Computed example of a mutant assay.
Amino acid sequence: MEARDPELRRELDATLKARSELGPEYESALIDSFLEKVEQRFAGTHDQRVRRHLAEQQTAAARGPAQSAGPAGTFGERFGFGVVSLVLAVPLSAIGVVNAGIEGLVVAWLGIVGVNAVHAARAWPQTRRKQRSPSGWEG
């Protein structure tokens, strides 16, 4: 449902027109009627969203765990992240050395290692879950 629904706008205009024609004694009934229409529209939109979400979950479950990427991404995404960080390490190292000497180089590489460690830590629980024993027992 869009923010400006033309059908609801027509309903509101009709309700306001009826209020001006019928008077304030019918105001509560008119408002209740309009709010009921708004609730029906909202319920229909909500049902569609819930059905779409359930269909997406069923599709993801049918594809299996190999197809669904976790918070750290697929192997290709993780590999690409590592390659990009190494490519960016060259200019970062040069900037660090030029501006602060060996201390700048150390700080630059500590930052690069830190970013990669955090990224790898996001993927670590997923790989641990995949390496469980076939019996299902943890240990």
Score class of each variant (00 low, 15 high):
74 T>Y: 05
11 E>G: 13
124 W>H: 13
34 F>G: 08
76 G>C: 08
74 T>R: 04
98 V>W: 05
117 A>G: 02
26 Y>L: 09
90 V>H: 03
54 L>H: 13
85 S>F: 09
62 A>C: 02
116 N>H: 08
82 G>I: 14
90 V>T: 08
54 L>W: 15
70 G>S: 08
101 G>R: 05
97 V>G: 07
46 H>Y: 06
110 L>F: 12
89 A>Q: 08
108 A>C: 01
27 E>L: 05
51 R>C: 07
44 G>M: 04
81 F>N: 08
44 G>I: 06
124 W>M: 12
65 P>S: 14
84 V>H: 13
55 A>Q: 12
77 E>R: 10
99 N>R: 13
118 V>L: 07
49 R>I: 03
9 R>K: 11
53 H>S: 10
65 P>F: 10
15 T>W: 12
81 F>W: 08
13 D>R: 13
42 F>T: 11
26 Y>Q: 14
104 G>K: 00
73 G>I: 00
119 H>E: 11
16 L>R: 11
122 R>K: 09
70 G>A: 09
111 G>T: 06
19 R>M: 05
70 G>L: 04
35 L>D: 15
90 V>C: 02
77 E>F: 03
45 T>K: 03
115 V>E: 03
63 R>F: 00
13 D>A: 13
122 R>G: 01
111 G>E: 03
95 I>E: 01
56 E>D: 15
54 L>I: 14
69 A>P: 00
94 A>G: 14
104 G>Q: 01
125 P>I: 03
75 F>A: 14
122 R>E: 12
28 S>K: 07
33 S>V: 14
121 A>I: 04
93 S>V: 02
114 G>M: 09
119 H>Y: 14
18 A>Y: 03
116 N>D: 04
110 L>P: 00
85 S>A: 15
46 H>R: 14
39 E>H: 09
17 K>A: 12
54 L>G: 09
20 S>T: 10
104 G>S: 00
33 S>R: 15
14 A>Q: 13
100 A>G: 02
103 E>N: 07
14 A>E: 13
45 T>M: 05
